[in-house]
Design a protein around this nucleic acid. Structure first.
Lengths: 142, 142
DNA sequence: ATGCAAATGCGAATCATTTGCATTTTTTTT
DNA sequence: AAAAAAAATGCAAATGATTCGCATTTGCAT
């Protein structure tokens, strides 16, 4: 069952259980694209879970430290846009008009990173890629 | 001479001249890597240019709108990290330890973007790429 | 030089995020 | 299973980056 596996996830990550942590984790699991804190807060309110905003921040910090989520990328005036860490990480095409996020099936960076590590004396541990433009729906409105 | 060409740059971009705009533009030209608002503010203070912080924000917004600078990428708790728009845009390797930014000579995204535009129905107008890891100096300290 | 539109400086407002502390919940000990 | 200890939460206030309103100043055309 759902709640049980969130408990397990917390345990595996070395975090203690709490109603609030479980609830946030459950919500994060349902998302197909990254989500802002504001959206997260809205969802908890809709679900009448009532989790204090500072608690949300604190829990997400804990999730970050324990590698359960990652900051997907940054949006102006909001530094938290997060998603559960997926086994294979993803990148998104982001529509400048409707803000829709379309995942790219396959991360194109591996070869590039191999090459960089060879050429430059630098050890790559992560990367962030965003591609901005206009989705098929929004191209029409121009 | 320097001040003259900043005037020209402003004109070309369709922006009026002002002492403050010229000064900021001159400072931006000197940078080899992107710079935060805070750094920019510090430099103006050191140079005794005294430009009000809100004015700096307003000028940078204007520069952004007129395509003279671009947000290089985002740093937690600071949404402005900017650089002059270069004819060829650049990406950086960013050291997680010392924060050093090492430019990548050549943007590896062109082919990838061509492919994405073909495969997905999406018109790409920009992209952002950051690569994080440890530079040669900092690898040693581990 | 004069007048006007646009830009700046200043202080106050706003908004996301963080912090201190009292209270509650979870875990440990007995 | 109750009591004690540890950790997490809620709340309200603090902080820090960014924005805004408005009075003043500046750049520029006449």
């Amino acid at each position: 069952m759902k709640s049980n596996s969130s408990r397990t996830l917390l345990e595996k990550a070395g975090l203690k259980y709490s109603r609030q942590r479980e609830a946030l984790l459950d919500i994060l699991k349902e998302q197909s694209t990254p989500i802002t804190i504001e959206q997260l807060d809205d969802i908890t309110k809709q679900n009448k879970l009532s989790i204090n905003l500072s608690t949300i921040y604190r829990i997400l910090d804990a999730f970050l430290k324990h590698d359960m989520i990652e900051k997907a990328f940054n949006v102006p005036s909001q530094s938290y846009v997060i998603e559960l860490k997926h086994s294979h990480h993803r990148h998104f095409l982001i529509c400048l008009d409707c803000q829709k996020m379309i995942p790219i099936n396959h991360c194109p960076m591996h070869d590039i990173i191999d090459q960089i590590e060879k050429e430059q004396d630098f050890h790559v541990s992560a990367h962030q890629l965003e591609i901005h433009g206009y989705c098929s729906d929004c191209i029409k409105n121009h």
